[in-house]
Amino acid sequence: MKYLARTADGRPLLGDDEGYVPLSAAVPDANAVEDVLSRAAAGTLPDLEDVPADRLEPDHVRFGPPLERFGKLWGIGLNYEDHAGDLGEDRPEEPASFMKPSTAVMGPGGPIRLPPAEQSDGVTAEAELAVVIGRACRDLEDESTVDDVVAGYLPVIDMTAEDILQRNPRFLTRAKSFDTFLVVGSAIAVPEAPLDLEELSVKTIVNDDVAAENEVRNMLFPPREIVAFHSRVMALEPGDLFSTGTPGAEPIEPGDHVRAEVERVGAVEAPVVR
């Protein structure tokens, strides 16, 4: 696995399981992670063994969001049948998708900032596997072509103001769109061969307790199907992100600590404040 990341002050990095080097040392004409998303999708990122630079250990790096600015932010609701059942919802016949604003994005470490209690006093946190698009595409015919346009994968924590949503399902955009309501992992995991996504598990962890866990194989709409489906709705562009749904949401309060773990992809965590 290779990794694309940025330091908290914006320096782009390329990494592997042993550490990181400056991206410009590996790809001299790259000034930003965005410049190599297409190479990530094509599987042509250089091996770090061939890069003449000392590696930085991840523990010695303060990470920011892996992209300076993401593109379209898609979310998929009710994508695990177990979770839909917990909410008393019927199984959707098509992906139950929604969009979030760029201002909802928060880097690794958060914090997750809850809105004033008079606006919402019922926020939940949800661990999810996210897919990052690496190459522009439109009208993908089927799932077999998706790996050619995906740069990699991220763990994310998605938030929902459930009390707002319960008042009226048409309030979904507002319930999902408060600032800091999408905490992204520190690095885009770039597989060197197509990843067997179905084998991966996703965990929502609050205060060290596993609140929900499930495997991607139990999604109603797998990640590759989600990407292909939405490419037939609109053009997808490098930096677009799909949060593919959660195995379960957990209510959070100020003082809580939330962690999303996605097997083989990574983890991201953040404290909760108001």
Results as ranks from 00 to 15, higher is better:
residue 32 A to P: 02
residue 32 A to L: 00
residue 32 A to S: 11
residue 32 A to C: 09
residue 33 V to Q: 00
residue 33 V to E: 00
residue 33 V to D: 00
residue 35 D to W: 02
residue 35 D to A: 13
residue 38 S to C: 04
residue 38 S to Q: 05
residue 38 S to E: 13
residue 39 R to W: 14
residue 39 R to S: 15
residue 39 R to P: 02
residue 40 A to S: 10
residue 40 A to P: 11
residue 41 A to S: 06
residue 41 A to I: 04
residue 42 A to F: 09
residue 46 P to M: 09
residue 47 D to I: 01
residue 47 D to H: 08
residue 47 D to S: 15
residue 47 D to T: 06
residue 49 E to W: 06
residue 49 E to F: 05
residue 50 D to I: 08
residue 50 D to V: 10
residue 51 V to P: 07
residue 52 P to H: 09
residue 53 A to K: 02
residue 54 D to R: 13
residue 55 R to Q: 13
residue 55 R to S: 14
residue 56 L to R: 14
residue 56 L to A: 09
residue 57 E to S: 13
residue 57 E to A: 10
residue 57 E to C: 10
residue 58 P to L: 12
residue 58 P to G: 09
residue 58 P to V: 08
residue 61 V to W: 01
residue 61 V to M: 01
residue 62 R to I: 10
residue 64 G to V: 00
residue 65 P to Y: 02
residue 66 P to S: 07
residue 67 L to T: 01
residue 68 E to S: 13
residue 68 E to M: 02
residue 69 R to C: 03
residue 69 R to I: 00
residue 71 G to I: 13
residue 71 G to K: 05
residue 74 W to S: 14
residue 75 G to P: 01
residue 75 G to E: 04
residue 76 I to M: 15
residue 76 I to D: 04
residue 76 I to T: 15
residue 78 L to S: 11
residue 79 N to Y: 15
